[in-house]
Design a protein around this nucleic acid. Structure first.
Lengths: 198, 198
DNA sequence: GACAAAACCGGACAACCGGTCTGTTTTGCA
DNA sequence: TGCAAAACAGACCGGTTGTCCGGTTTTGTC
């Protein structure tokens, strides 16, 4: 009937990207359970049909967010920095300092994206849990590899275990920082790490 | 009309306790958002009216769980152990080892109750955030006080900062352990702490 | 330019949620 | 013993959720 000409243009990749961006932001802000797909549709400026076409279920969406957004954030924030720094130790400290600076500037702490999803969904869904675990492994391995390449004495005899400690300190401090809305926990961990890696 | 004799007996305290127990278990298992009050009513064997009488809103319920259950768990698991151990350092290590043993025996990791609620609700509700932050403060302070009393050299010059590191390591390692369903992260942190506190 | 597949539209739907309401029973107290 | 308040019962409601579906439009291909 109403033959509206409609100047629509299909852009699957772009639409998918917009949805993923909005979803990543929403999950980070209110969590997986707290995020509403209806609201997501509204914020991303897409239709329900389009959302369902690209991501049939909410679970599909969060899996994509993990592997395409959270993963990239870990790579950008952590892996790249650790690899490019003069030494692994300096890279690690730099990430802490950068994070503290960003959070202080922003004035609020919304937590580690990976940690948020890890705690919320690890027990609820095995696939999500596996995806999150995979990201932790990549994160840890990047640190361990750099420390091994450095021949870092403090990481002996098990660089992977030390990397585990670094990741645990960061994740834990981010959680405390989120609850207290202060970066003191991150600063304390950075200070302790500096001692440990001297 | 139907004058069923009904052998009901009012037991406000007991009913409240049952609700709180079920709620703590449910929040721990599926999170705050994932927990259904209808299901809670069913599991706890109480009625909707009774639940509403004792806890008018879900928020009231989680606040009570934090201050009466999570708090007690922190006190039992951490504070008591650290205070009674031969030294603060030994107490800290013992908590890690005990936790690892319990989780390995149970075969699954459901995470740190405080951390779970902290990440899920800190941004959503200011009152809950404050309650969680208070528990973190108590936890940290107990460790710091013991280390100060010990005159622990490794905690100088700021025992509170070191306590922050311990709490961050534990929380973070629990999160990783939850995602990986392995206690390796906890073991790595325990090992590192043993070094640091030697 | 026919045609099938992919992309997109927009609303409908059943299930479920937290919270409310009215009414009944028990209990402490005067 | 009377009585108000607390404790409990259980049905009920409006709103929201994730998901689905019948159509329409665009796009690549022969």
């Amino acid at each position: 009937m109403a033959r509206t000409p409609s100047n629509r243009t299909n852009d699957p990749a772009g639409l998918r990207r917009r949805v993923l961006d909005a979803a990543a932001r929403s999950f980070q802000a209110v969590g997986y359970g707290g995020a509403s797909l209806h609201e997501l549709v509204r914020e991303a400026g897409v239709t329900g049909g389009a959302l369902h076409h690209h991501f049939p279920t909410k679970k599909d969406l969060v899996l994509a967010v993990i592997s395409e957004r959270v993963s990239a954030e870990v790579a950008e924030t952590w892996i790249k920095t650790v690899q490019r720094a003069p030494s692994g130790a300096e890279g690690i400290l730099q990430v802490f300092e950068d994070t503290i600076a960003v959070l202080d500037a922003k004035g609020s702490v919304s937590g580690c994206p990976l940690g948020n999803l890890a705690l919320e969904l690890s027990l609820a869904d095995e696939d999500v849990r596996g995806a999150v675990a995979g990201e932790y492994a990549v994160w840890r391995q990047a640190i361990a590899e750099r420390l091994t390449a450095d021949g870092a004495a403090f990481a002996q005899p098990d660089p992977d275990a030390f990397a585990n400690v670094v990741v645990a300190m960061f994740s834990g401090a981010m959680g405390i920082a989120k609850a207290e809305q202060k970066t003191a926990a991150l600063a304390a961990c950075a200070h302790q790490l500096r001692r440990m890696m001297a």
